[in-house]
Write a protein that binds this DNA or RNA. Structure first.
Lengths: 135, 135
DNA sequence: ATGACTGCAAAGACTTTGCATCTTT
DNA sequence: AAAGATGCAAAGTCTTTGCAGTCAT
């Protein structure tokens, strides 16, 4: 038997915060973002709800970047670029893995592929500018 | 001026440990692995050397899996499958992103792509077997 | 009322770091 | 001898969790 889920104003606000930004937020970011309107919000609640959203597939994890886990509320197929310098995550709509590659891998290796992600790493426009030229 | 690097028996052993396994080890794994032969090895040294290897490109990070960062000493182009259940990382030789996609992304988005990775998530053969069938 | 949700603060897990000591060159 | 590398333990970060009080149904 699975645990029932009730309505919660803060849960709603946490999800809305994630879904209304393209910055791929961390728990701390969500907390700081909502703190002004929800002065009694606690970081523990943010973490608990992020775990819940992840478990039921409402959001995805982008992975741990510079020590903090980052989340994405956009479930449409797209890839990410992660800046090695500032940690910014940039969406790459339209960029996808080869079609059918997940099924090919499943068959070929006897795995059950549930998810596939393509990620690019490097320097974002901002950090390219700030790079020293004599290196 | 950059800092010189001297020889160190432990550094050599740490690198050898990573390069001689396909398990994509964590710092703790390397530490436990070398402890018998190097009783005075400390975890701090493992971390410091892992950071060094990563900085000079001798090893890659596979990312943080279930709380621990995992590393890969195999620099040849290949992809990874990560088990959502046990955290095991499996190499997928021959599985690669679309050719030229990194350059396309660089151009299209004004980024400087340095690295691109394709990762699959799901259940490994071991965990498929242990899955309950009535779910 | 019942069971879920939350705040708070403590605990946990992993990683980093300061400093004295030991090694390599 | 100089500068790097290490052990040890303390400190740092991010995340999880226990418990008592609060809220939704």
């Amino acid at each position: 038997m699975e645990r029932a889920t009730r309505y919660s104003k803060k849960r709603e606000a946490i999800l809305a915060a994630i879904q209304s930004t393209r910055c791929h937020p961390s728990a701390e970011w969500v907390y700081q973002r909502l703190k002004p309107d929800h002065p009694d919000l606690s970081l523990g609640t943010v973490y608990r709800n992020l775990a819940l959203f992840q478990a039921n597939g409402t959001i995805h994890s982008v992975g741990v970047i510079q020590g903090q886990e980052r989340f994405d509320g956009d479930l449409s197929p797209h890839s990410h670029f992660i800046c090695n310098c500032c940690g910014q995550v940039i969406d790459l709509p339209g960029v996808t893995p080869k079609a059918g590659q997940d099924r090919a891998v499943s068959r070929q290796y006897g795995l059950k592929v549930q998810h596939c992600e393509l990620t690019f790493h490097g320097l974002c426009p901002d950090c390219i500018q700030q790079e020293p030229f004599d290196l």
